[in-house]
Design a protein around this nucleic acid. Structure first.
Lengths: 350, 350
DNA sequence: AGTAATTACTTAAACGTTAAAGTAGATTTT
DNA sequence: AAAATCTACTTTAACGTTTAAGTAATTACT
């Protein structure tokens, strides 16, 4: 078996507890012994057994992570890995382990997320891509340990919420389109069961109603897949009165939208301005490159960990953390292209 | 504190061991007691403490995972998440936990990967994106527990290797170009410190030498970044005698190559055929869409787990697992475009 | 009927660590 | 010089589980 604290103790002729204390740099151990302990520990190639430590201290230093990255979801392409990167960085920096679970495994048919965490004595859990119709939502609400959920707001004593400021994101997008002269702006939204869909739709509606150009018939419902974007775009093309711009609630759908318009030999962005949401990497490479609202996905990962750690420490600063999105201007939007207005704007912008 | 086996035992007036055995469905416990135990365990909301179990059984059911996804690396865009998906699925299916570490954390300045695993009593470790010049390579070689490394071959008693059959991949790519009539085929390779670079270069060289068209001057060295692809493409454009096709050792570099040629108003694919390697998602969306060699990244993740689990069980079928790549034909390659040959081929293909 | 085997438990011990309480011996205080 | 304090340890116990060994009570065998 492997070298334990006992072996080190024996070698030095002291008690195991003395060794433990020495290694933990406690002040009731002489410097001399500490030095000797460290030395022989190294010589014997001692490695602490974190499992034993966790058992006795009743502290697992573990956070469970669930990334729901089913095909249909926005995250599948890029964001998931960015969240994870942020989570890992912040957790490891604070000496926490990340145990990550596959969502598609049939493990979950037997045990809930909460049970998986409890068995491992995880001190917290992070969810990304959780759907409002998930069967385990109830258990999450009543969790006895801190939880951070990215992008899905759920009420619960121990539940924290991390997201992009969607309202601001939508405003950035619409301000930009508005500034380019667009007044007839359609929206393609994600599916009903994603929190962000509702947020984004509300923000869109409020913005346009305020300016008295809201038109219900210009709102379309996709499901975050590329194909749904494609289908919605087809519907838009069949409208009697075309919009001049489309605000698409995810980049993935925007890819489908672009595809559809290109197939129908629209010239982009002249004939239709398209703005996405997420800033997935593909957006840089398609033609026209996609103007979009960028989310700070790495930051969201970090904050999901921070909120949990704060709660563990008993600091309860906030339950909610909204990160600022930013407008990323590329080539998929142009100044509005309808006669007079077009000309006016062109002059003004020059 | 939480409910333990003891609480259940007390409630039923039996010993804790009896409860443990009942829950583990041992045969020296009566069906009657088993039923009662299960029932009260549920009633009391008992959750097993896996930490205690791990300590006493000396089995952590944990595999450590290290994904080196620094910006410069191919994986950063897509493959990392696919590997992880495969790893998770296979591990969780077999009741193993995945503990994943951030590589950029300064944790690693203090402790080696091996130490991190040993402390947690991980039964195995998986590395992806490991570089040959990594400072901890020596410790990996001498590991006392099984390790799987994706895409980097390292000799070592307990080290398994999972990769794409690169030789086959290169042959698929070159066969395809050859079939389109290309004879002057350049290569843009990745950096020296990636195993796959060497493999791919050797396969490329062998293939062309066999057909007596190898030309050393057509080999360029990138470093897997998009920009390096761009730079190499610029060099290629300055050649006196242009190649008609370029085999690029990663899709990410191929993106840079395409960018460079488009900027110099080459018509793609007519003026230059480009084939990549990896099949990252962006390839589908750029113009022209990228013909490439697809890797079974999810499968690689799964196999990296399987090899470790086999070794743990004492089954030592193989140390090496090469997954079959496949040619993914899109629009970035055309039949060769130089006079006679072009015409001939066109006739033959029609 | 008496011994052997089986059933269904129990008790003791262990896994490697740490927290809490105890204790000699040295040092300081008064 | 006696009491109080401090230093540097040691001993005991615990964390929640499992394995191994033990033991009554029942059943089976000859």
């Amino acid at each position: 078996m492997s070298v334990t604290i006992k072996d080190v103790a024996e070698r030095l002729g002291v008690s195991a507890v003395a060794v433990s204390k020495a290694l933990n740099d406690r002040k009731d151990i002489s410097e001399k012994l500490k030095r000797k302990v460290r030395e022989t520990a190294r010589k014997l190639n001692y490695t602490p057994n974190s499992i034993a430590k966790r058992l006795v201290t009743n502290k697992s230093n573990t956070i469970g992570v669930f990334i729901f990255s089913r095909q249909e979801h926005t995250f599948s392409k890029d964001l998931g890995l960015q969240f994870l990167g942020g989570i890992l960085e912040e957790a490891n920096k604070n000496n926490y382990d990340i145990v990550i679970f596959s969502i598609d495994s049939d493990l979950l048919n037997k045990k809930s997320y909460i049970e998986l965490c409890k068995e491992r004595k995880a001190e917290g859990a992070i969810f990304t891509g959780l759907r409002l119709d998930d069967p385990h939502i109830g258990k999450i609400k009543n969790s006895t340990f801190p939880i951070s959920i990215i992008d899905t707001f759920i009420e619960g004593k121990n539940v924290n919420f991390v997201s992009t400021d969607n309202k601001l994101g939508v405003r950035l997008a619409l301000d930009y389109l508005w500034g380019l002269g667009h007044r007839r702006i359609a929206m393609i939204n994600g599916h009903r069961n994603a929190q962000v869909s509702r947020k984004r739709l509300n923000a869109y509606r409020d913005y346009l109603k305020e300016r008295e150009v809201y038109d219900e018939r210009l709102v379309f419902r996709g499901d975050f897949t590329e194909d749904s974007g494609y289908q919605c775009a087809k519907k838009i093309m069949r409208l009697k009165e075309l919009p001049t711009a489309i605000f698409v609630a995810s980049d993935l759908m925007a890819l489908g939208v672009i595809k559809a318009f290109k197939e129908s030999s629209f010239k982009l962005p002249e004939d239709m301005s398209i703005i996405g949401f997420d800033n997935i990497s593909i957006g840089e490479y398609i033609e026209p490159s996609l103007t979009t609202i960028g989310q700070d996905a790495v930051g969201m990962g970090k904050w999901s960990v921070r909120l949990i750690l704060n709660e563990i420490k008993g600091i309860r600063l906030q339950k909610k953390c909204l990160l600022k999105p930013k407008l990323i201007i590329r080539d998929s939007c142009s100044i509005v292209n309808d006669g007079k207005l077009h000309k006016q704007l062109k002059e003004r912008l020059e």
